[in-house]
Amino acid sequence: MSEDELLSHAISTGDMSAFSALVRMYQGRVRGFLLRMTRGDHALADDLAQETFLEAWRKIGQFRNDGPFSGWLFRIAWSRFLMTARKRKLEPLDETMEIASGTETDSDTKLTLEAAMAKLAPAERAALTLCGALGYSNAEAAGILSMPVGTVKSHVSRGRERLHKLFYGTEANT
């Protein structure tokens, strides 16, 4: 069954097996996004992902087909993350941690990217992840993060600048 068929089945009949297939389809991306947002806290990311899918199930009737289902899921995931971050007072790390560069293997570089990402503000991290790794447009990311497109663009550009500084120790020439 295609994503659209699964969705309409889950919405119209409350079919749990259709929703279960959607969970299997998207769990990796949602957990990966939340893992980055929680700066590598697997347990917290999984808790938030579970809450995200539970809320999605409860509100599935409210889903309007005016955008991708994955975007709707990420919107729930982002708001869950924000609520928890406010409650637990999760703050971004300061910029004192040294970032190695130049001689790493590919997996080291990825690890370094995660470490550098962890130093960005949550909104910068989210905007960069949505517009980079997850391939959303600025407008779609703005819908997910509930912010104006201009704000998303500035988060993306500021995040890139800061990452460049963390990796190479200099400001980027954009």
Binding site: R24, G28, R29, G32, L113, A133
Partner: peptide
């Protein structure tokens, strides 16, 4: 930045 996110294995999550 364009690299796909590392997606954790399902491992019973669903």
């Amino acid at each position: 930045l364009q690299c796909p996110l590392a997606e954790p294995a399902d491992d019973g999550f669903s």
